[in-house]
Design a protein around this nucleic acid. Sequence first.
DNA 1: CAACATAAAAATATCTACATTTTTAATTTC
DNA 2: GAAATTAAAAATGTAGATATTTTTATGTTG
Lengths: 228, 228
Amino acid sequence: MDTPPRQNQGISAYTWLKKDIIRGVFPPGEKLLMSHLKERYDLGVGPLREALSQLVAERMVVAISQRGYRVATMSLAELNDLYDARSQLEGLLLRLAIERGDDDWEAEILAHAHTLSKVVEVNGPDEVLDIWDARHKAFHQAIVSGCGSVHLLRVRESLFDQAERYRHLWLRETVFSEAALATKREEHAALVEVILNRDSPRACAMMREHLMTPVPIIAGVLERRGLL
Amino acid sequence: MDTPPRQNQGISAYTWLKKDIIRGVFPPGEKLLMSHLKERYDLGVGPLREALSQLVAERMVVAISQRGYRVATMSLAELNDLYDARSQLEGLLLRLAIERGDDDWEAEILAHAHTLSKVVEVNGPDEVLDIWDARHKAFHQAIVSGCGSVHLLRVRESLFDQAERYRHLWLRETVFSEAALATKREEHAALVEVILNRDSPRACAMMREHLMTPVPIIAGVLERRGLL
DNA sequence: CAACATAAAAATATCTACATTTTTAATTTC
DNA sequence: GAAATTAAAAATGTAGATATTTTTATGTTG
């Protein structure tokens, strides 16, 4: 039997750090002390610096030469620009998917729409959040993957990652509100319908709106919690 | 007098490495030996690993755990997908720029179109290449920056960077051919015209085509030089 | 004898501990 | 209270120890 192909510590450091930044363990703007990180993850500075360098490239962390690293700040301006960018890009990918998608693509969308609509409470609300989020992501992923472009999908993912901290704020507001959840269900059903009808202009417009609805909600949370 | 705010070696390592990979000093797929890099740039492994980690995030380099780093390979499949993605994205940004751009935006385009059209031979052909390339980039940058979205422009830049190695092959074929250069001049003039007329559908279609023309040329060079 | 397996050796990647430089905070001086 | 000084903390860099992979050499089997 082969031992699990031991991956280097830089990768684990990257994974943990990214998760903790998204979850808000390290709030926006916070200084990331080497001493603290070393202790928290029980790793040396080498691997940590590697991980931080990657996160700098992903704009999750900012490096200031000779002054270490900080968690990237959040702002209303960034929220707006990021969601605008995301929704415009999603519109483009959807248009391409409608042009290029085949029967399998359609089938996948229907399948994911179904599982998403069937999320029910199992072991407390926190589990619902995770499951709904995972299926929601998978649903949208299924839609855009019809565009067939690895690079466009990657670029989408990078914007998605950058938005993750904002999205996380919205998620709690939405999943725990039956009304909000119902609205989303309707929006998703409507989306599936126009997409399968291959009505590109209408579908793209709906998609862009669908992606922009969280913005005012997130803006509210940000201000209330003073995360700016 | 204050000393220049000394930047850490990771950043220089990143800059040199990236340049050398784009210029083909390290060909696609080549193993990047620490011993070799240490000697070439006269740096320790720490800074080098930081730089490589960033380049991994930018997909210029691939890391294989316990087996070091390699220059990302090139392929016809990637060439096609990358240029497709770039041209589709550029189309989107242009549409937004036409919707959102103001008078200054128009002025900037005209200014850059002018300087680009006036590139003349100065100190040998290699200088022409650099100057034309810089002005060509600035021209296209001026066009899309009208979209006003920091994040979309950043995403565009990341695709641009990934395409840089391919683009570099095309550049030599184009700049050193008076005929090719003349064609580009015409395409640019036509682009400026439709853009300033704010004829979005036509402008986007032209832009997408403009960006796709290098593909067959690059494919030719790749095959001839056996870079696959 | 070729194909395959095994074991030792070399090369390489990775990590840690320490040394150096720079920044930040605290304290003193004018 | 501002400027200068000193002390502590932190970031960065280096060298060497450790672990892993790759290569080479050697032996074994069909």
